[in-house]
Each structure stands twice: as C-alpha cells, then as structure tokens.
Amino acid sequence: MAHPADMKTDPMVPVLAQITRKHMEIPGVVTFEVEAPGWTGFGPGQFNMLSLFGVGEIAISISGSCHDTDRIVHTIRDVGAVSHALTMLEEGDTMGLRGPFGAPWPVAGAKGRDVIVAAGGLGLAPVRPILYHLLANRGDYGKVTLLYGARRPEEILFEQELGQWRSQLDLDIEVTVDHAAPDWHGHVGVVTTLFPSADFDPDNTTAFLCGPEIMMRFAANALTDAGVGTRDIFLSMERNMQCGIGLCGHCQLGPHFVCKDGPVFDWATMRPLMSVKEL
C-alpha cells in the first residue's frame, strides 16, 4: 500500500488511467478495470479520486482485490454529473486517477475472529475487497458472514459472484431486498432482519459495515445489542471529498477529515458524531 511519504509526485495531480474492461453490473452501475502508471496497490477500503477532464472529479472506492496489483477495479453508480460522464466511458478510454487515499478496513485485526460484513445497496462495492481478502486467507478467520441488503432483486450487485461465494461451504451469505415481486424466493426486509439468524460469537467478532448512513447506524446498533464491542464494528463514511488528502476541508465530520482519517472508522468513534444532526 502506498504511503504518502513514498509519493514522489504531487498528490493533487492525477495520472492517466486506461480502461481495460467495462462491465455493466445493473442498470446505472458500471464496473471498470483500469491500469494506471505507477500504481503500487491499495488496502481494502481505500479510494481513488477519478476524474474526467473538463467535467470534474469524484471519490470512488476500490472494489477489486488488493492481491491484484495491476488492475484497479472501480464500481461506479451514475448519480451525478461526474459519475454519469465516467459511466459513459468505454474500453480504451482514459480517466484521471489519483490515489489510493484513506484508511483501509482493519482486516489484519480481525484475524482469528468471526467476521460479519454487512452492506447495503452500492455499499457492497467498498467491502468486496474485504471478501476477496478473507477468501484468500480463509484459514486466518473464524466464521465469515456476509449480510447484504438491496432495494430490489434486480438491483443486487455482483449477483453472479454472490452465487459463487454462496456455493462455498465456509462462507455464509444472506441477501435481503426491500421489496420484491412474488417470484423472488429470498428474504424481504431491511438488512438488520438478517442479524438474529447470523451465526457469530459476539465476544470474538469483527464487523465491517458499508451502506447508507442510516443503514449502518441501525446495523451497528443491532450488533452492539447482540454483544459485539463498539471498537470491533467498523463503518465506511461518506462525505464530500474533493482533495482526498485532508487539505480542502469539505469532508469534516467533527474532528475528523473523513478522507484522511477515514473513511473507515470504528463505531465507538462514530456513534456520538452520527447522533448529532447535520454535523
């Protein structure tokens, strides 16, 4: 993982990254594989600043495997001007890329413990590197559970991959949707309804949560109610990130620069801040 001190160039200046593969995940969500000069890898949970010249720049988490040091994988949802323009790019096109930035998920700290990964909506993308890591080092961890909530069955991200993972006996995957047509045979309900049947030892569990803030709040509360420690629950926060290096000030959340000190924080740190409205 690149450390700021190793960076020889100005962290505000992007490199040109070339798209080697484009894949439509679900309507409005595209995964790109890109190659960038000078890339030395990333830690799960880190993000890059992606840009299209003349349009703008946005923070996008890395959704690929940190064991894959050549390809950089980003899953982007078309929600704003910049993300829209990015999703319109094709294989062979280039985009501006700087990074990786931010504090990664502390996967090493979860060694020897049960792991719960709970994600909602597009929040599955930033936690996918955790799952790749856990699968690559399966023996180092206890029971591993992925609980995933999506809006509708048609909006389940990485569905094929989820199916492959589900066929593995050492990984428990539960998917729920907010509403569905009757041909859906899976769970219907919010992601927290999956917690009671999840199998984990609360005294020896690390949880990684990613999704809309309100979903993470309820999920973190459900986990603490089940006995998981507030320092063993990690969340990935989203704020307006413009520089990615803690200098522009936009992403402040209480004393923290989300881009530099986060985006991954523990629940003990976030709980008091997330209970304040409009902080």
Binding site: G121, R151, E155, G211, I214, F218
Partner: peptide
C-alpha cells in the same frame, strides 16, 4: 426504513 428507500438513486 423501507419507506426511506435508502438504496434508491436520489
């Protein structure tokens, strides 16, 4: 929570 449609596109 479902009513908030938290995963929807704003």
């Amino acid at each position: 929570l479902q009513m908030l449609d938290v995963y929807g596109t704003p």
